[in-house]
């Protein structure tokens, strides 16, 4: 019985693999979670060191190298690495200050953590054969829901039930307010979903498209077009990597602003 299913699955897989034809499409294989140690197909438990672990660790190392190693000389006239570190510091610091005001600055380290993690994971994912941790909904959902719960809890702690004023649009006509409250409430609860799917979707789509074009490169006739397309999409992905990190961070700041100043 087990053998039979094996065979059926295997033949189905053969077709999908395109074992006979020249084209081999596996655009999603790059997103597989695999144990680093042991053989392919070994079970993945929650504590197993996987390629997720490896690339998360590399992100941590990259952040350490960028933010700590480059600034170790603390020079008044910065080196190139130090100015990048200072630039990213100033970029996020100003963003938090501009959007949430002075009161939001005590949450700056958390927002900086989010930004640095997303931006470094995104860019590391652009390395060939890399595993993009931020292309996984499990990862971005943790980030998105963490922001959502943090902001909601913070809103109630700081403002009490006044936080519900966020849903009561006092500038609208009274008759419209209940309807608007329902819409605001729905949009509020959709936030973590859109927040996390936006990031994961963008990262996954770009990488999958590159992989599809890479598969076409096996056909000699279209190979030049395919390689050019890969280069073009890669350039686009470089932009997307930064923009998505930026968007995630700035939305986090906007949500944080709601918690700090819930009145419309």
């Amino acid at each position: 019985m087990a053998d039979e299913t094996q065979v059926v699955v295997a033949t189905g897989a053969d077709v999908a693999h395109g074992a006979e034809s020249g084209l081999v499409f596996h655009p999603m294989d790059q997103f597989l979670v695999k144990p680093i140690f042991g053989q392919a197909g070994d079970p993945v438990f929650w504590y197993t060191p996987t390629n997720v672990t490896l690339w998360l660790g590399l992100s941590v190392l990259a952040i350490f190298a960028l933010m700590v190693l480059t600034t170790s000389r603390r020079s008044v006239i910065p080196s190139r690495g130090q100015s990048v570190a200072e630039l990213s510091y100033g970029f996020i610091y100003k963003m938090v200050e501009d959007i949430t005001g002075k009161e939001g600055l005590k949450y700056f380290p958390y927002i900086m953590t989010l930004f640095m993690f997303i931006v470094s994971a995104n860019f590391l994912g652009l390395l060939p054969t890399a595993f993009t941790t931020t292309s996984h909904i499990a990862v971005t959902a943790v980030l998105g829901f963490a922001v959502f719960f943090a902001v909601t809890i913070l809103g109630f702690v700081l403002n009490g039930f006044g936080f519900l004023g966020l849903f009561w649009v006092s500038s609208a006509p009274l008759a419209l307010r209940p309807i608007l409250a329902v819409i605001e409430l729905i949009s509020y609860f959709v936030r973590p979903v859109s927040h996390s799917i936006r990031l994961a979707g963008n990262m996954m789509a770009g990488h999958a498209v590159i992989k599809v074009f890479a598969a076409f490169a096996a056909v000699t006739a279209v190979a030049p077009v395919s390689v050019a397309a890969i280069a073009a999409i890669y350039g686009l992905e470089v932009l997307v990597c930064f923009i998505q990190a930026y968007v995630f961070t700035i939305l986090t700041c906007v949500y944080l602003k709601d918690a700090l100043h819930p009145a419309h």
């Binding site: 929650w46 672990t53 998360l56 941590v60 952040i63 380290p109 953590t113 941790t133 499990a138």
Partner: peptide
């Protein structure tokens, strides 16, 4: 579970490195 576990560890480490 695996992804969330390692992500949380990575985030905590990044947070402490940064802050």
């Amino acid at each position: 579970g695996n992804q969330i576990f390692w992500l949380l560890i990575a985030l905590v480490v990044i947070y402490f490195i940064l802050s």
